[in-house]
Design a protein around this nucleic acid. Sequence first.
DNA 1: GTGAAAGCGCTAACAG
DNA 2: CTGTTAGCGCTTTCAC
Lengths: 341, 341
Amino acid sequence: MSKAIIDDVAARAGVSIKTVSRVVNRERNVRPQTRARVEAAIAELNYRPRLSARSLAGNRSFMLGLIYGKPGAHYVLDIQEGILEICRPHGYELVIHPGEFRDGDLVNEVSELILDRRIDGVLLSPPISDHMEAIGLLVEAGIPLVRIAPTIDKTAHPFVETNDLEASFELAEVLIGLGHRRIGFITGHPDHRAVGLRFEGYRKALRAHGIAFQGELVTLGDNRFHAGEEGARQLLSLPSPPTAIFAANDEMAGGVIKTALAMGLRIPEQLSVVGFDDAPISRQVWPSISTIQQPIREMAKTATQILLEQLRAGEAEPHPSMHPARVILRESIAPPRTQTS
Amino acid sequence: MSKAIIDDVAARAGVSIKTVSRVVNRERNVRPQTRARVEAAIAELNYRPRLSARSLAGNRSFMLGLIYGKPGAHYVLDIQEGILEICRPHGYELVIHPGEFRDGDLVNEVSELILDRRIDGVLLSPPISDHMEAIGLLVEAGIPLVRIAPTIDKTAHPFVETNDLEASFELAEVLIGLGHRRIGFITGHPDHRAVGLRFEGYRKALRAHGIAFQGELVTLGDNRFHAGEEGARQLLSLPSPPTAIFAANDEMAGGVIKTALAMGLRIPEQLSVVGFDDAPISRQVWPSISTIQQPIREMAKTATQILLEQLRAGEAEPHPSMHPARVILRESIAPPRTQTS
DNA sequence: GTGAAAGCGCTAACAG
DNA sequence: CTGTTAGCGCTTTCAC
């Protein structure tokens, strides 16, 4: 068990502790020879700088914070692991903060994170990435942040994004291309703005193909499975039900599938279904769901890289970064039945 | 923005910093009156002790570590949030470490966690809770730990557990009670020992009801959806296929359902399916899966409480704690068809 | 019960 | 390029 401290290393290498510090912190202005000696000493003693000491003296914590909403377990975990993959090798730890969008506590939690933990930087995942109050707090405190997939106010802060709108336009076009004209839509949670863009993509596709938008074909969802079930029940009970349903995420698309099957419909023969996210559920239901794959993990990695760079440079440029999503076609779609019910 | 430090508080309250420290740390031997004065000063100044300073001086980090394997996103997230719910109010942060069971790096990561971060205590979730090498390392370093749902060596360390074996015995009995005699089983990942107990429960139930165990009705799984698909394909292709399939977790049960439906079978009329975990997927497929609900989040909470208590007391008693699981019946089961295929 | 002094192990100025 | 001197803000002795 190594109890070596910086003085031990300095003594062993025959230099001052400051030089050791320089080597550890990868500062320049150290003769290669000296650096090598110090590094050898570090290795021999299995020295590791005590984080708390570094934090106290250097006034930084080597910790990053992730504040996330609740957009589904796999989404959060993907982001989390994407971040870790990048920040660990750079000596940064991650502390995680679940936060409810509408919860007043979020603001408290954020200030706690800043005040107590002296977090060096923060990553905001949807829908918190649109929580301007929390962002304001961070900015005020001078804490660097990167927003993951924000939809509003995309000017002042660095962020990473994907093309929700274009991708859902494309997916809607696939349905139209198959011959569907009555296409239902189940919207996402209103707080989760990125999901709102998917609705835009759907409308834009209708417009582009001269199909009139019909309000009765839209139901309000909240990103959860249950909303898909409800929405499907509602849409499929219409006098003239849709031949296809586009749910704003896979979770809800799964709900649509379950309800449709329970109602005795055959998919895709009698109803086509598409979702969004390429969530596990899209592969696990039968029939599997056509969807859109978002590079969530990659976005998280890029966001972390941007954040670390900012910490290094002290800069805070907007620095946007785009990770395109792509359509994935599976079993849940087919041309609409000609005529008959 | 509060920049108050302990000296400010001491001055404001007219006491020495040591007394402030005593109040902050809830030590006894402070006159109630003095305590009140100090607390008032703390509130007025919105003082929050700087963690890094506390860590450096007190030689503890106020951070807990979670080392987890990969037993599915919802499982991990449940554990994570259970831990946070308890440790946050006590001023502890959580740092998370994904770790592969078979990965040699796990040991390195653990020592890093100990050496660099001076983690105060560690929670081990399955299957890492059975990783005796990692545990040995922690013990050697004198880091308190609590194991979540371990299956081996349950003597030396505190742990929380559930009754996997009894619960699956019960679930298997439900199938037998319905009249099933040929019941297939898809086993879990061999590293994930807790899941192994579910197989034991199944065998025990067969034995208890005088049904001969048949090796051909068992396939080896790995807890993942795909293994359920494969296993079902194999079992349902037998000359005399099972009338029911028990998968060691819901993920695999979902795979069974998908495959069975794709093969044109009707569930539960032609095949009953049960799983384990009460994972979201068990509610989201059609028909929904009968399963066993484990109090995962509760286990995590109890584990954290035990850990915090240990940190306070400096004790490390085995201190086991049992959270019973319970059977949940849903649409996926029915009596076997009499006679005909 | 309370306080004074002495660090915890490191980084941040400044010298050289 | 390298070393010296001060702290960072708290907890710990050990007095009183």
